[in-house]
Nucleic acid binder design. Structure first.
Lengths: 249, 249
DNA sequence: TTCTCACGGACCATATACGATTTGAGATAC
DNA sequence: GTATCTCAAATCGTATATGGTCCGTGAGAA
């Protein structure tokens, strides 16, 4: 173009235009869902969101379509979108699937994790152990995520990594995960973390690391199921197990 | 409603209205991509597609957004969409990820597969063995998919199953998979199929079934890599392995 | 009192229109 | 002959407008 004093406006355009409005809406909704500002079941009205973001409904529609494809919102024709409800069955399935992909990603990371990262993961786990006594599910969950991130982010397979991220995003929709529900699980969790770290630090077979990471997550899932079964059992209701869960009998 | 001769039109309306136009566009594009009528890299022009389907561009845009979120098309702002190109690195990653999720789905299916299904899988594999001599990569790939479908479709975890489907859809974008590229792989493949069937029929540990299924896919991936390395090696080019692939050293 | 049905509001689905951006070809200067 | 600049066509991004569907509400009849 014509050079000169247009720089400022050019920069502004570049910044404003860097993200399309539909991308903006997508980020906005995704963040608000992740931060629990929009709780599961919340009705997403296109026009309201468009007003909030000072845009038309068209970009909002596209954003919601993408969120739908990722399983973060459910959509009903001629009715609208709502934040995906993770019912208990869905939660179990999501945890199971996450165990698979996260385990694989961790296994593939194992040989690529730098000593510095390993050190950081150890510190985070120490921190987790430290907060066990004055227990706060919310903080614990956040630290827990941080810990696992270090372990799988080195996975060279971007596709697999993306699946892991989606899994976490889906589950973050739930109340502070299992730890709020089954506080006793936290202590075991920390111990299993230490075991996984030992395996990685000792240069164990990646498959062994993978299975350890997977079983760690599946154990959390199992703790949730057991806790639920207990409550149901006390209420004298027979609740059939939704899916066969453990591969190792 | 009012009975009589409106039935036909009523049915037509019900059928036409059952799928929204954006869903129609989505199915249309997805099918054409899967059938290779739209080859990778093909430029998807919104208006042309809208014209073809006798609709406006808005539903087409939404359909493409969904396909983008699934990784079947790539999108560039202000430029447009094109059918996702699976480059060799992407192919390897996709196969690796598919090995993980398909293996898991197969493992979780193992105990749920009916004898009838197992019988059918055996027949399909016999068919595969039969066509080994007058080899047709395209037919072989189709039968291969049929075989594996029987094994993982019984997976009770819908999420995992969905990941498997997406993986297959992504890879189907490629030319007739590895078998056209490495014909020698087909014979080994059939033998491995038989092994997996034996494991399932024998009531083996699901984890064992899972690892067998995973290694089966990863072996196909490895065959592709080896073939490529051979060609590159003959051309005297040093091609570094893209990712560490085998978990078992 | 309860069930049925018509009515109206809220919202979604799609079409059309206009502005913004990219891209590629042709012209011009070196 | 090559590189750069200019301009126009193609295409996308978004806004606005209109028609259709769903759902809650209230009146009327059994």
């Amino acid at each position: 173009m014509t050079g000169g004093d247009v720089t400022a406006s050019a920069v502004e355009t570049a910044f404003a235009g860097a993200l399309s409005k539909s991308q903006l809406a997508y980020d906005y909704l995704r963040d608000r869902i992740a931060l629990h500002e929009l709780s599961p079941g919340y009705r997403l009205v296109l026009q309201s969101i468009a007003d909030e973001l000072a845009m038309s409904v068209v970009p909002v529609r596209e954003a919601i379509r993408r969120l739908e494809a990722e399983g973060l919102v459910t959509y009903e024709r001629n009715v609208g979108a709502r934040v995906a409800m993770v019912d208990e069955h869905g939660y179990v399935d999501a945890m199971q699937a996450l165990g698979v992909v996260e385990g694989a990603a961790t296994g593939l990371s194992a040989r690529a994790i730098s000593p510095a990262d390993l050190q950081r993961a150890t510190e985070v786990n120490d921190h987790l152990r430290a907060v066990l006594d004055h227990f706060d599910p919310h903080a614990f969950t956040a630290l827990n995520r941080q810990f696992h991130s270090v372990l799988f982010e080195s996975c060279p397979n971007k596709l697999l990594l993306d699946m892991v991220h989606r899994g976490w995003a889906q589950l973050s929709g739930l109340r502070d995960s299992t730890f709020a529900f089954v506080p006793g699980r936290a202590r075991d969790s920390v111990a299993e973390h230490a075991h996984i770290l030992d395996l990685i630090a000792g240069g164990a077979d990646p498959l062994e690391v993978e299975i350890a990471a997977r079983n760690h997550r599946w154990a959390t899932m199992q703790a949730f199921l057991d806790a639920r079964a207990d409550r149901a059992g006390r209420a004298d209701r027979a609740v059939p197990r939704p899916t066969p869960l453990r591969e190792t009998p």
